[in-house]
Write a protein that binds this DNA or RNA. Structure first.
Length: 302
DNA sequence: ATATGGCCCTGGTTGC
DNA sequence: TGCAACCAGGGCCATA
């Protein structure tokens, strides 16, 4: 499943090939099954130029400049099986095709499980906070039609500002220090920190020797700081290796990642712990309804 | 504030 | 071999 390193891998692949390209046409061949969300008509994006491609958490963001010199954004949430591929990749799972001005150049969005989202918005930045969520709920009862519309418009703004590769250790502490609940549940909570998903939560917790169900409030500042250091190290390492190709993930040029070869707990249920001198067997459990892997000897609850 | 479970969806795996 | 049941889970939502 694409997490931060996979999104970053895709972004790097796209940057190398389609920066400064012009979008000639946009097609949604399976509009019955996949509906992008628009703040304004898709026509406004035609003939626009791609001026930047970056990532926020697990989302890939393409910034364009329209013919009227207006900045617009295309936010792509890859979900579980989303792929952004350069070239001709038209099949029954292709939901969006962007023809670009480079000869024969296309950008295709494939997503077999259809958990992915594509949003055409004026601004991607996170200006939507929990208080507004509350007012939106009231609106749902009072005026259902307006609610549906606002929900659509506001969805892109639910992206929070924190990104493990962009925040400082101090900021990380301010989010997690003395927080209640299980550490893995908090790591997966994208309202707190964007980018960490199931694989990298398991792998980083193993590296820091923290049990996935560890109560956060019982962890010392030092322990959390150490964890943050290891998390960033693992994410960077995974980016260097082109991400983890577990089921569907490939980079923009259809290349496989290699970080799955470095996994020490994820998907290794029942196998021997890889830490030298440890005889533990990797256990499987469930946290936040996500399958969770850890070594019961290395990662003890305190 | 935190926890839980359902929903969306398809492809791969398991079991009879 | 065939077919059905089950599982994978990111993000969102309702409910407790």
């Amino acid at each position: 499943m694409p997490e931060l390193p996979e999104a970053e891998t895709i972004v790097r692949g796209l940057r190398a090939h389609i920066l400064n390209s012009r979008i000639l046409s946009i097609d949604f061949p399976r509009a019955r099954y996949f509906r992008p969300q628009f703040e304004e008509p898709v026509e406004h994006y035609l003939e626009s130029r791609i001026i930047d491609i970056f990532r926020h958490g697990k989302s890939v963001i393409i910034q364009v400049k329209t013919l009227e010199e207006a900045e617009r954004f295309l936010v792509i949430r890859l979900g579980m099986t989303g792929q952004l591929l350069l070239g001709d990749h038209t099949d029954r799972h292709t939901h969006a095709i962007f023809c670009l001005d480079s000869p024969g150049m296309r950008l295709c969005f494939r997503d077999s499980r259809q958990f992915g989202k594509m949003l055409f918005v004026k601004d991607w930045r996170p200006i939507f906070r929990s208080q507004k969520t509350l007012s939106l709920r009231h609106q749902k009862k009072a005026a259902p039609e307006a609610y549906a519309l606002n929900k659509l418009n506001r969805q892109p703004f639910t992206l929070p500002a924190s990104d493990p590769l962009k925040i400082s250790a101090g900021e990380f502490l301010s989010i997690f220090w003395k927080r209640r609940g299980m550490i893995k549940a908090a790591l997966l909570n994208q309202h707190l920190l964007v980018g960490v998903g199931n694989i990298y939560a398991d792998e980083s917790l193993f590296a820091a020797r923290i049990h996935p169900k560890q109560r956060i409030q019982r962890l010392s500042k030092q322990r959390l700081l150490k964890y943050f250091t290891l998390l960033v190290k693992i994410l960077n390492n995974a980016i260097d290796l082109g991400g983890s190709s577990i089921s569907d993930f490939v980079g923009a040029t259809n290349v496989l990642g290699e970080f799955q070869l470095e996994h020490r707990v994820y998907g290794r249920t029942g196998e021997k712990c890889l830490r030298r001198g440890c005889s533990g067997l990797i256990k499987h459990t469930v946290v936040s309804s996500r399958s969770t892997h850890y070594c019961p000897l290395c990662q003890r609850r305190i």
